Computed example of a mutant assay.
Amino acid sequence: MALANQPVFPPNRHALYDAHGYSPAIKSGDLLFVSGQVGSREDGSPEPDFRQQVVRAFDNLKAILTAADCSLDDIIDVTTFHTDPENQFDDIMAVKGTVFDKAPYPNWTAVGVNWLAGFDFEIKVIARIPAGNG
């Protein structure tokens, strides 16, 4: 039986988790709740190029999913946060198209915000933990 609210950390733990006191993800029952992932380098600093920041955010997300024995196919719900949605849309869609390249797609909510602690893109997800991996 899986422990309730079990934290999940990727193998290369990023400095932001300790600096801001949060877990990258929590397993709860058969669900995985992934905290907002940004395009941070291992030291916690933002990737300066916007498109590469989005790529890194997805890479950070994939590392957490892998650590929880999940994959992109297990994602149910996606929420993304954008500091300049209108001007960032093309870059985000280009990266998104390489990550989620075929249906069925997860549901997705995009939110424009004015601050992300030095970042310009953040992605959080809820995933179902495959049977036997909880």
Rank of each mutant, 00 (worst) to 15 (best):
A2D: 05
A4I: 13
N5P: 03
Q6W: 01
P7K: 12
P7C: 04
V8S: 04
F9Q: 01
P10N: 03
P11D: 15
A15Y: 13
L16P: 00
Y17C: 08
Y17A: 09
D18E: 07
D18V: 11
D18L: 05
G21S: 15
Y22V: 05
Y22R: 07
S23L: 13
S23Q: 14
I26W: 13
I26G: 09
I26T: 15
I26P: 04
K27W: 09
S28H: 15
S28Q: 14
S28P: 02
G29D: 09
G29W: 12
L32E: 00
F33K: 13
G36N: 10
G36Q: 02
Q37L: 00
Q37S: 02
V38I: 14
V38H: 00
G39P: 07
G39V: 08
S40H: 11
S40A: 15
P46G: 11
E47K: 12
E47S: 10
E47M: 11
E47W: 02
P48I: 06
P48G: 03
D49S: 10
F50C: 01
F50M: 10
R51C: 10
Q52N: 09
Q53T: 06
Q53A: 01
V54F: 02
V54L: 01
V54M: 09
V54C: 02
V55S: 05
V55K: 02
F58G: 02
D59L: 06
D59C: 06
N60T: 04
L61Q: 08
I64F: 04
I64L: 11
L65D: 05
T66D: 13
A67F: 08
A67I: 06
D69L: 13
C70H: 04
S71W: 10
D73V: 11
D73L: 11
D74M: 01
D74I: 04
I76E: 11
D77C: 11
T79C: 00
T80S: 04
F81W: 10
H82A: 01
T83Q: 00
E86K: 04
E86Q: 08
Q88A: 09
F89T: 03
F89Y: 10
F89M: 04
F89L: 12
D90C: 02
D90N: 12
D91F: 01
D91V: 09
I92W: 09
I92N: 00
M93S: 14
M93K: 15
V95Y: 03
K96S: 11
V99S: 02
V99W: 05
D101Q: 06
A103L: 15
P104R: 14
Y105K: 12
P106I: 07
N107W: 04
T109W: 07
V111L: 08
V111G: 06
G112I: 03
N114L: 07
L116D: 03
L116H: 03
A117G: 14
A117T: 14
F119V: 08
F121R: 00
F121P: 08
I123S: 00
I123T: 11
K124M: 14
K124E: 06
I126E: 01
I126Q: 07
R128M: 08
I129Y: 00
I129A: 10
A131M: 12
A131N: 03
N133H: 15
N133D: 09
N133P: 00
